[in-house]
Simulated scan of single mutants.
Amino acid sequence: MEHFESWKDLLNPEFYIKMGGFWLILFIIFAETGLFVGFFLPGDSLLFVSGIYAVEIIKETFGGSGNDLLDTTILASCISLAAIIGNEVGYYFGVKTGPALYKRPDTMLFKKKYLYQAHDFFEKHGSMAVIMARFLPVVRTFTPIVAGIVKMDKKRFLIDNIIGAVLWSFSLVFAGHYLDKVFKDQFGIDLKSHLEWIIIIIVLVTTLPVLIKFVFGGPKEEPKGPQE
């Protein structure tokens, strides 16, 4: 069992895997969108690293099936379900209380600029935003809330939510699992020994679009939010 030592542990997906395993992973994925303060949690890197540990995670939780593909599929499927539920909670939070967020003062865990960014992203991409947002840190936390605020059709949202969650979960979990096997078999490299670099690369790749938008997107008028 891992023990919390510093704030850096909160950004390290391996820490969560070793500290809480399967159930903590699911909670974190849910919290990223189900609890709007979860934007700082390591979503993409957590999925990738979970894929590397997939067999161990399922074995410790359910005893394992003895089949790598099945164990990885079980993990990815459960993560997809947690991601779907999280987005649905975020959506209904937006429906019920979203307009009030535009009047809420900034805190350490809540910044209105993130809500504005998600609003702009949703307005530009519409229905596809729900799917695309899964692959963008911060944006994926607030997009379901914005979808709720603008009263997106709930059936359409559910369909896009399921598609996005499955694509996101399966692509990253399976990438982690099978890239680890390829590097071991072909190059004799164990990715578990290089997780710090892997996490840095994933963070850079996933946050680059957001950073480019922030730096080069130019000043924008803040959305006024839903009409009273």
Rank of each mutant, 00 (worst) to 15 (best):
G38A: 13
P42G: 11
G43D: 01
G43Q: 01
D44R: 08
D44P: 12
L47T: 04
L47H: 05
F48G: 04
I52R: 14
V55P: 08
I58V: 14
I58D: 00
T61K: 02
T61N: 04
N67V: 07
D68E: 12
L69Y: 14
I74T: 07
I74H: 10
I74S: 08
C78Q: 02
I79D: 04
A82K: 00
A82N: 03
A82L: 02
I84Y: 09
I84E: 14
I84M: 14
I85G: 12
G86N: 04
N87K: 02
N87E: 06
V89K: 13
F93T: 05
F93G: 02
V95Q: 15
V95Y: 11
V95N: 14
K96M: 08
G98I: 05
L101E: 10
Y102T: 08
Y102H: 10
D106Y: 07
L109C: 02
F110Q: 01
K112L: 07
L115W: 06
Q117L: 15
Q117F: 11
A118F: 01
F121H: 02
H125F: 15
G126P: 01
G126D: 04
S127Q: 14
S127C: 11
S127I: 14
M128L: 15
M128C: 13
M128V: 12
V130R: 06
V130I: 13
R134E: 12
R134D: 09
V138G: 01
V139M: 09
T141K: 14
F142P: 02
V146E: 11
G148E: 07
G148I: 09
V150H: 06
D153L: 04
R156A: 08
L158S: 09
I159G: 03
I159C: 03
N161W: 12
N161C: 15
I162N: 04
I163F: 04
W168Y: 03
S169A: 11
L172S: 06
L172R: 06
A175D: 10
A175C: 15
Y178D: 00
Y178M: 05
